[in-house]
Design a protein around this nucleic acid. Sequence first.
DNA 1: AATGCAGCCAACCGCGTCAAA
DNA 2: CTTTGACGCGGTTGGCTGCAT
Length: 262
Amino acid sequence: MVKSISFDKNGVKKGAWSEEEDDKLRAYIQRYGHWNWGLLPQFAGLSRSGKSCRLRWMNYLRPNIKHGNFTKEEDDLIVDLHNKLGNKWSAMAAKLPGRSDNEIKNRWNTHLKKRSQEDEMIVLENEHDGSIEPDQVEKNENPNPEILQEVENFLAGSLESPSCSSGTELSACWMSGSDYTVSSEVALQTSDYESAGDFWSEPFLPDITSSIDNMLSHSDLIEGYMSHDQSSCQDVTMSDEFSWSTFDPYFQYNNEPVDWSF
DNA sequence: AATGCAGCCAACCGCGTCAAA
DNA sequence: CTTTGACGCGGTTGGCTGCAT
């Protein structure tokens, strides 16, 4: 079911996630948030691309995510939304709390698509018999603009709400309304960390040999951001138990030795 | 018991969008 | 206006599982 483990030319791990990796990613995000997916694997001690980490978090690890066992109501809603929206999986996920866009997409492709096609055949047969008027048949090729607008409004509204469901929304409000997401300004102060290429394809290298002197510590990094412009930190909400000044390394939290010399 | 095959789903890939420089 | 980086989205794939033969 899961892809086998492999490493690309940059030493980035691909394939199925281990329990240990899940624990690392979960613990890191629950503690620090996903302030920058490109740098996160480096700080979390993962030999994964940021893109892979994001996907794993959004589809599997984030709180309140549900797996399997779609209810009939959920199935009906997916079919209904697909009729109205087409393949707008993220918009559909916004209407289905606890379900990721990926899971909805899989659900549609493996179960509901066939069912929907069968239903459509029945409708068309009835239409041919004259039992249903043609304008009663809902078309799904081109989503109704009014429906799309409705969904857009919904999404805009839900972003202001603490109860988010989809991966798209969740990045800003997954934890009791608190927001652990840090704006991209952080990244601007961390250019020393970044590799030359696209971080999605050229991420964390475990054997980086740069001098530690050239690198900011994790706390320096975040403190630097916080002091950069406190008034604009609307994206950052830290819990009371977290102390910026007394940096408590993630690895310590994770019962692993701290090693910033990579 | 062995083999083949279809179903299923986690993960990958490439492209588009948006914001900042 | 252009470039670049960060991220999200949707399509596709790899490989495990279970069923049929």
